[in-house]
Write a protein that binds this DNA or RNA. Structure first.
Length: 161
DNA sequence: GCCAACGTTGGC
DNA sequence: GCCAACGTTGGC
């Protein structure tokens, strides 16, 4: 199983919104590197839900990949700002996955994350990185959970939604 | 293939 | 709202 980090602006769609709706297609990603990460995701992978463009930014919860990559519906919708006229049904350019909530976390601000030496290699903390979907190593995952005071068993045994 | 112009991200 | 950093576009 792999670990990931997904950014979202809480003013648009935050972790609480994911809890409310129960399941969400992670559409609108229009960056090739981020898309490739989406395509590498497997059902059952876990991801941190990160709040960007907020005050303060940081990790708000954990979610699970409920469906691996399939074509992003918005690329075919002329009314969507994510419409891509160069994309075709036969050869879709953009992908999305479905995510479901697992549990909220005690909020871990970006500042707090910067203070954890185990995370110094995370793209999230590198200057100038804007990647909205990125892998998280097992060591980084564990370091973050440990700092949050959360044990694996607290959510790995949680019922699937 | 280069690179200037432009648009976007996202912390502050 | 500012702006640094980065990605994309398109003329040449």
């Amino acid at each position: 199983m792999a670990y990931w980090l997904l950014k979202s602006e809480p003013d648009v769609f935050g972790y609480q919104d994911l809890e409310r709706v129960g399941k969400e297609p992670w559409n609108g990603v229009r960056n090739y590197q981020a898309r490739n990460h989406l395509r590498a995701m497997q059902e059952g992978d876990l991801a941190f839900f990160y709040h960007s463009n907020s005050n303060p930014p940081g990790i708000a919860g954990i979610c699970r990949i409920a469906r691996s990559a399939y074509p992003d519906n918005l690329q075919f919708d002329p009314d969507s700002k994510y419409f891509d006229p160069k994309s075709t049904e036969d050869n879709p350019r953009w992908s999305m996955v479905d995510v479901v909530p697992v549990r909220p976390l005690p909020f871990l601000s970006l500042d707090t994350l910067r203070g954890l030496p185990e995370l110094e290699d995370m793209p999230l903390l590198k200057k100038g990185t804007r990647l909205s979907v990125m892998p998280v190593t097992a060591d980084e995952w564990q370091a973050i959970l440990k700092h949050a005071g959360v044990e694996d068993a607290d959510f790995l045994s949680a019922p699937a939604r």
